[in-house]
């Protein structure tokens, strides 16, 4: 009788090893997904340093200034518009006129050199997002920008992954609101019964035939 090639406990070792390898693979994949979604990787919630520590909380929540006062093209064109220095100065030529924090704005107004704000939301260049159509179809600022009226310093509220965009493009009724609530930061789409939201989707002529999830809707 020839000697056994494998010892008796080889069966157990084999089973344990297979289980360990499967767990390891699942673990690595979950860890990668977790990492990919984590604020550490996406930068959600990290305030970006700016030349002037502009506070949306102060201007929107406390002073109740409408989004459109500064982002005046949001209803008309793709780009919401970073306000020009002139817009800042239309108030700050009168109030806070000596604040050292606003020196870059005053310098810009005098010299014509732009204030170099740092980008917070950076979509890939192959995505063509249009603010005006979303606003016109009843998608609120807060749906993407979160409660920016509660942010002292501006940070991303969403990583802007494609799956997240598609979530709304597949089921707009989950995120739609009446047009006159678009700029209301405290409004939640769920305040409205689903039947009414479905009616809004129809009233605002949002295509539900699948066109919203075609590649060319966002990519050209």
């Amino acid at each position: 009788m020839s000697a056994q090639i494998f010892s008796r406990n080889a069966n157990a070792i084999l089973l344990v090893s297979i289980a360990a390898i499967v767990l390891l693979i699942v673990g690595i994949i979950s860890a990668l997904i977790g990492l990919y979604l984590s604020p550490w990787y996406t930068g959600v919630g990290d305030a970006i340093e700016q030349p002037v520590p502009f506070s949306h909380k102060h201007h929107v929540d406390q002073l109740m200034i409408d989004c459109r006062y500064c982002h005046s093209t949001v209803e008309r064109v793709a780009h919401a518009g970073i306000p020009s220095t002139d817009t800042c100065m239309s108030c700050h030529s009168q109030i806070w006129t000596n604040s050292p924090l606003l020196q870059p704005v005053r310098d810009s107004y005098q010299t014509g050199e732009p204030v170099l704000w740092n980008r917070v939301y950076d979509l890939p260049d192959f995505v063509y997002f249009n603010h005006s159509v979303h606003v016109a179809k009843g998608i609120g600022c807060a749906s993407c920008h979160g409660r920016i009226d509660q942010q002292h310093l501006t940070a991303k509220a969403q990583p802007l992954y494609m799956g997240w965009c598609l979530g709304c493009h597949r089921a707009p009724e989950e995120h739609i609101r009446p047009r006159d609530e678009v700029f209301n930061m405290a409004y939640e789409p769920q305040m409205m019964p689903i039947a009414d939201r479905l009616a809004l989707v129809q009233e605002y002529q949002i295509p539900v035939d699948g066109r919203l999830t075609h590649c060319y809707t966002c990519h050209r």
Partner: peptide, 18 residues
């Protein structure tokens, strides 16, 4: 493809002097 050599609104430029 993520950062294409093209201008989109408010993007800085090293071509123009200002």
């Amino acid at each position: 493809m993520y950062d294409q050599p093209k201008y989109r609104p408010n993007r800085p430029s090293d071509f123009f002097e200002d």
